[in-house]
Design a protein around this nucleic acid. Structure first.
Lengths: 171, 171
DNA sequence: CTGAAATTTCAGTATTATTTGAAAAATGAA
DNA sequence: TTCATTTTTCAAATAATACTGAAATTTCAG
């Protein structure tokens, strides 16, 4: 890019480009979180911050500082995200601090697996009260149910392919 | 309720095919909607009612009656669900009534396709501001991005398999 | 076990979302 | 086009949720 290495501001400029880009990312995630994912804006920001941090692990205080919200909110949201599989928690030895990170892509597979199974069960529940006297309902719910089963099967194969594919590079 | 089949109202009440057995389903969907899917309870109920109705199409008034909510709410929610691909709308000839149904499973594929592409784009956006000076972020976002691309490719093949599989029965 | 450090909980408050019902707009059969 | 029917919009009321900050609890190094 630059042919003027003596100009100090260029360095500053590139840094602030990075920060602006991160901000746009964080705000975009926050907006998607509240408009499409049924999460709070802050939940989206926290997830985004963990995605974009150039550290492997962040403490709750790091996150707190990055999103500019209270200790209590950050604690609650991190735990919620963990319970849903979107964040992992650990402890670094020699400290009582818990540290957080976003899981590897292959862990996302597990999140999807859980949601597929819930959906399949839901369709099975709907089907329970539906007999031959209601052919329309039976076919509709039946198709949805079968689709979930199909998707589950496909998903297992897909997961395996992903894990094989990334075998050479990452853990 | 009445056991008087000579009374004409029975025909009018084909909607009451939505019986007690379905209530558990509707309430379960409603609860999942508000706890996990980021929809309102009423949105969940409306979707559930459309899933479980033994009619191919329902009018907004049918839905209104089934969920016991106001005309305004039902209208707004049906349009929102339609915009997201979870409900389809049509008009029966000779009437100014719009009618609604849940789409076939293969239309759900399109919903998923859209959400995968949004997610992929989001990761690409995150990656935009990240250079070699931030290897941790670059690898993490890169992996998420690659996973989305992988999933998109797999998903196309999967969709085709589903459509072939159900070729004999449905549209 | 102790106690400093860290996390979690929770009551209070602020904010946001949902729902209603009626008015406005749109629709389409005649 | 007309106009009764149907849908949509929107202001107001209500309900639900998110957020804070401080107190209570938990954690773990020493």
């Amino acid at each position: 890019m630059s042919d003027a290495p003596w100009q100090g501001w260029r360095t500053d400029f590139s840094i602030s480009n990075i920060m602006n880009a991160d901000n746009e990312f964080i705000e975009t995630v926050a907006t998607m979180a509240e408009t499409s994912w049924g999460m709070s804006r802050l939940t989206g920001k926290i997830w985004a911050v963990l995605l974009v941090a150039d550290k492997v692990w962040m403490s709750a205080e790091d996150v707190m500082e990055a999103v500019g919200s209270s200790r209590g909110s950050v604690s609650t949201i991190l735990r919620t995200l963990e319970s849903v599989g979107l964040v992992q928690r650990s402890t670094l030895s020699g400290s009582k601090r818990r540290v957080y990170r976003v899981p590897s892509a292959s862990s996302l597979i597990e999140v999807e697996r859980v949601s597929l199974e819930r959906m399949r069960k839901l369709m099975a529940l709907g089907l329970r009260g539906v007999d031959e006297a209601r052919p329309v309902t039976r076919e509709r719910l039946g198709e949805y149910h079968d689709f979930m089963v199909f998707f589950q099967q496909e998903f297992e194969a897909l997961a395996e392919r992903w894990n094989n594919r990334s075998k050479e590079s990452a853990v």
